[in-house]
């Protein structure tokens, strides 16, 4: 029995350490955002929502928030069809040079973000589209696209080909079979991918930093620009926006597909 217990003790010690490490910034930001004082200190000076009031009143932050939202929408709207079709092609069709294409589609993961970002900055500059917001969404889509493909591919691999064949044999036209059989079957993958793409674009810092200017600054860049030596609680209040968005995304993901999908072996 003692060996079983020692195993549990060791494993759980590491797990608890992990939990503290993972949760600490979130918990502290939540706490700091409701302090009365002008600086964050221990012990806390009292409870107040005044920093949230200041944040809501700030035009700069509101605009940055709306821009980030727009970037995420552009990113998701491009990624969902492109990633879904690519995943279905990889799972369902015989494609020439399939291995090579897979490696090519993994490039956004293997190319460091600073390289991808600077390259796109130069390219967009040459094309004269710098200073607009949609290229930032496009760039976020490009760098995270493998997530979308990977999510749909996981669902597509679980789908029984016989179902599609049955639909075709029963006289379903290709588009009809696609809409009534294939799409519903890979829906969990599409939802997972879409949520990932949205949240990752909403968070994207480096590529946003490179591709935005003073007029198109997004929320993560705006927070970064405001980080000063003296730590004030108003930034903590803005950061809570991220905690809320993350919580919402996780709740939706868990409700629609279940978080356990990420534990499945391939």
């Amino acid at each position: 029995m003692s060996t079983v217990r020692s195993k549990a003790v060791v494993l759980w010690t590491v797990v608890v350490l992990n939990l503290i490490l993972l949760a600490a910034p979130t918990v502290i930001i939540l706490g700091a955002s409701v302090t009365t004082g002008n600086i964050i200190a221990f012990p806390p000076e009292g409870f107040s929502l005044k920093w949230y009031g200041k944040v809501f009143a700030s035009v700069v932050l509101r605009e940055a928030f709306v821009r980030s939202l727009w970037v995420s929408i552009v990113c998701t709207v491009i990624a969902v069809p492109a990633g879904t079709l690519a995943a279905l092609a990889l799972a369902r069709y015989r494609v020439r040079f399939a291995k090579l294409l897979q490696l090519y589609l993994l490039l956004p993961f293997t190319v460091p973000l600073i390289g991808a970002g600077m390259g796109m900055l130069m390219l967009f500059g040459e094309l004269g589209i710098l200073g607009e917001l949609w290229p930032v969404g496009l760039a976020c889509c490009v760098i995270n696209l493998p997530f979308m493909i990977w999510a749909v591919l996981a669902s597509a691999n679980a789908l029984d080909t016989d179902l599609e064949n049955a639909a075709a044999n029963c006289g379903a036209a290709p588009l009809q079979a696609f809409v009534t059989v294939t799409l519903p079957a890979v829906a969990p993958g599409i939802i997972t991918g879409a949520l990932l793409m949205f949240v990752l674009a909403f968070n994207e810092f480096l590529v946003s930093l490179l591709l935005t200017d003073a007029n198109t600054v997004t929320l993560p860049v705006s927070i970064y620009n405001s980080i000063r030596n003296v730590i004030t609680p108003d930034l903590a209040a803005v950061s809570v926006v991220y905690i809320l968005v993350a919580t919402l995304a996780i709740a939706l993901l868990d409700r629609w597909v279940g978080l356990e999908i990420f534990l499945k072996s391939k």
Partner: peptide, 13 residues
């Protein structure tokens, strides 16, 4: 939760 919160906010924490 931290995965979805992003790097800047976590570093700020």
């Amino acid at each position: 939760l931290p995965f979805f919160i992003g790097q800047v906010v976590r570093a700020y924490g």
